[in-house]
């Protein structure tokens, strides 16, 4: 029944788990719900549920981070549904639907991975991809050869993949 040590048993466990993952969980919740109060509520509720279910956490199956995100995803869905009951929101998509939460999670992960890139790498991706600017223009603005812009784009994508993998993302997911 109780396999090994319970997760998040002590206050110190909770503190370190929060220090490690609290900010990320908040970022994901905010990305899904677009509401700072609700996002903070999600973080509190996530840690509470995690503490309650601490004996079910199995480090053999996955990381604490993955487990917390799985809980947070459910809390986000609950929060969005509760909010929709109180005040129906006019939105293109209903954020309480699992698919919408899933999309928000992917969006947040990609944005977080982009934030973790070296500034030079992030810059070329933003300029050439998101702003759709020509390589020559970006190269001139940055005072570097076009070939360097191109290789920075390459290394930016490679780093992005690494950052996503560090966050537990997989090709299958």
């Amino acid at each position: 029944m109780r396999a090994g040590r319970r997760a998040l048993r002590t206050e110190a466990d909770l503190r370190s788990a929060y220090a490690e993952h609290g900010g990320e969980l908040y970022g994901f919740a905010l990305r899904s719900l677009e509401d700072r109060e609700l996002a903070e509520e999600v973080v509190q509720e996530t840690f509470l549920r995690a503490w309650r279910a601490g004996s079910r956490f199995d480090p053999e199956i996955g990381s604490l981070r993955t487990w917390l995100f799985a809980i947070a995803r459910n809390v986000v869905i609950d929060q969005a549904r509760a909010r929709a009951r109180v005040a129906p929101v006019e939105r293109a998509e209903f954020p309480g639907e699992p698919d919408a939460v899933e999309r928000a999670l992917v969006a947040w992960q990609v944005e977080e991975a982009l934030r973790r890139l070296a500034p030079d790498h992030r810059r070329v991706l933003v300029e050439t991809y998101y702003r759709g600017r020509p390589y020559a223009e970006v190269a001139a603005e940055l005072g570097i050869p076009e070939g360097t812009v191109k290789s920075r784009v390459y290394y930016a994508l490679r780093s992005l993949r690494l950052a996503l993998e560090e966050m537990g993302w997989t090709d299958e997911g």
Binding site: L14, A19, V43, Q44, V106
Partner: peptide, 30 residues
């Protein structure tokens, strides 16, 4: 590359942070 369209470039400049006392509120609730 196929994941890039899901990100919103206006959101990547800085990570949103919760209020600093959230850690204490988490501990209080538990």
């Amino acid at each position: 590359a196929r994941l890039l369209p899901s990100a919103d470039p206006s959101r990547i400049e800085r990570a949103p942070a919760p209020r600093p006392d959230l850690a204490d509120r988490v501990l209080d609730r538990v």
